[in-house]
Write a protein that binds this DNA or RNA. Structure first.
Lengths: 342, 342
DNA sequence: CTGAAAGCGCTAACAG
DNA sequence: CTGTTAGCGCTTTCAG
């Protein structure tokens, strides 16, 4: 039993393949009666259009590629759901990747995707500590007219690309204001892998906010490049050992948040009595952790929907002006920040 | 700037397209010198093989489809990572779906995948409460020789298919034994959407285990069809209101676990003092929740790797004997089960 | 309204 | 070792 083709239908009905094609695609040029007959026998034979053939013919693959920096990040649960919500009704499918924060792997996937004729790419580009990235490749794709929308991360000074990101600086400043209002002056921040756009932005936001709010910046409390995230544990242990803990810590990533909570508990440090903590990326868990975590929330589902919608618009009009969307995050106040003033 | 093809390279070097093809694919029949030249100009022109063309030609798409019952389920974070780990080195890509536990959506995606010429499908099939499913379609695919591996879920009495699942009954029985050892006799179980293979198996395990261990079964404590999972909250509230709580509850799904914890906290019920709880699907969060949750752990990453490996084997040999893998889960003991004997 | 024919990019069989 | 030719399944002219 082979996959039936358009020819099989044609043969069964004693008509030509092109007529079958027209009938099936709903294009003008086939009587209603014939159309019905064609559709019926297609059903019967279990016919399914070979989409690769169409891709070859008119490069409409109805597939979009998603470059995911690390598929184990819960970010993608929400993000992909948002993307899929938008794509499914329009019959676009997702070719998924997982680049593990690795520039070479990203390059491989990008080339594969192009090879498969994706109509567009949703990407959160990887940048290594050294600054190495696939910018050049993305630029080539741009020149070839392949629609690209960056989400979550982007390249600086590359305004020709569309993007959907969260205002990372603002979100950290919101956290800083909240801490300051609660009397905190000794504030630390835990940052993930260096060089990544979001992380650098969050650091900038921290520095900017501290200046703005007259919060002293202490180098030992700016904990950079904590990657893999387990490293958060030893960093926190170190701070504790030297008796050098700030009164509050801001986490800048969901995983980091969890490891900090873990490390804090293992050290028998009480939140928020001895240490206040602001988590990053909201989830039901943050509500359930003891104590419920005050958290910076990114609108991830929305980000996915907007990214997908933008990409589809870009596919329809390659020459539209760049679409740049910056979403606001918010601070969800719960119980992990102590008020030092009372 | 158009995507360069094999022809462009041929023209640039004044050779024939087929020679380029041979040179690029590393097949015999092209001098080393020429091969190098071809590869160089390919690089220069930014050539990337059009994989749709190859798919059309010899139906080797190098894509496998993954039917995901609900992409928001953290299960997929791990599972997809396991799958990707295996596929990437072998140059297979993932065409992702999200069927939201909906049979029609599953059908649509299955047809799309076939249309795109996927070489195989990894599926956790959906079954509705009414028993409605896409079994027929899967059987058709099987007849057409399309490799399919079921993971997490399967159809009863369909032994022709390959599968990788967890021993769901055993895992619940392990939990029951643990509870019994700690003196529990009044045990409840929270089950997700009815009709789903894993859920039905876990219920069977519960019933079987209770019989085996002489634990009385009380109907009100078998809470079925809790879907969407938020319903767990009102169900637990109801039990509490009627003063009819068991001494222990087994959750049978990661999300359910979280909502139960949430509901319990909202009701000011103390775990484990007033109520013992065994969660399902381990994660770092379960360690961090107060109290750390004793949890049934499925080897999800491994499941993903084995599923992908099996599918690849099946692709290589369609006529191999069915591969049926049943993985053992384990109980991670933490602090959410009270010892009633002491 | 319908059929014949060409071609999308690539590979493989067949010649040379 | 290299070129020519045909064809994968479909759409799209171009004829009729």
């Amino acid at each position: 039993m082979q996959k039936p083709t358009i020819k099989d239908i044609a043969k069964a009905l004693n008509i030509s393949p092109s007529t079958v094609s027209r009938a099936l695609s709903g294009k003008p040029g086939a009587s209603e009666e014939l159309r019905r007959k064609v559709i019926d026998t297609a059903q019967e034979l279990g016919y399914m259009k070979n989409l690769s053939a169409g891709t070859l013919k008119n490069s409409k693959s109805k597939i979009i590629g998603v470059i995911a920096f690390d598929i184990r990040n819960p970010f993608f649960l929400e993000f992909l759901k948002g993307v899929e919500d938008v794509l499914f009704p329009r019959e676009y499918k997702i070719l998924l990747s997982n680049v593990d924060e690795n520039v070479d792997k990203e390059k491989t996937y990008l080339n594969w995707m192009i090879g498969h004729g994706v109509e567009g790419i949703l990407a959160s580009p990887v940048t290594e500590k050294t600054g190495k990235s696939n910018l050049r490749l993305y630029q080539d794709f741009f020149k070839m007219g392949i629609p690209i929308v960056f989400y979550d991360r982007l390249f600086y000074n590359q305004d020709q690309f569309d993007h959907v990101i969260v205002d990372n600086q603002d979100v950290i400043i919101q956290a800083l204001i909240h801490l300051k209002e609660n009397g905190h002056e000794k504030i630390g921040i835990f940052l993930s892998k260096k060089g990544i756009f979001t992380i650098e932005e969050r650091l900038k936001g921290f520095l900017k906010g501290c200046k703005l709010l007259n919060i002293p910046v202490k180098k030992e409390w700016i904990c950079e490049d904590i990657y893999p995230h387990e490293k958060a544990i030893e960093v926190l242990n170190g701070l504790k050992r030297k008796n050098n803990l700030p009164t509050a810590i801001i986490a800048t990533n969901n995983n980091l948040t969890k490891y900090i909570v873990y490390a804090v508990k293992k050290n028998n440090i009480k939140i928020p009595e001895e240490l206040s903590l602001i988590g990053f990326d909201d989830s039901l868990e943050n509500e359930l952790i003891d104590p419920p975590l005050t958290t910076i929330k990114q609108p991830i589902l929305e980000e996915g929907k907007i990214a997908a919608t933008s990409l589809l618009s870009r596919i329809e009009d390659r020459y539209a002006r760049p679409m740049r969307v910056v979403l606001k995050g918010e601070l969800i106040e719960r119980k992990s920040v102590k008020n030092l003033k009372s």
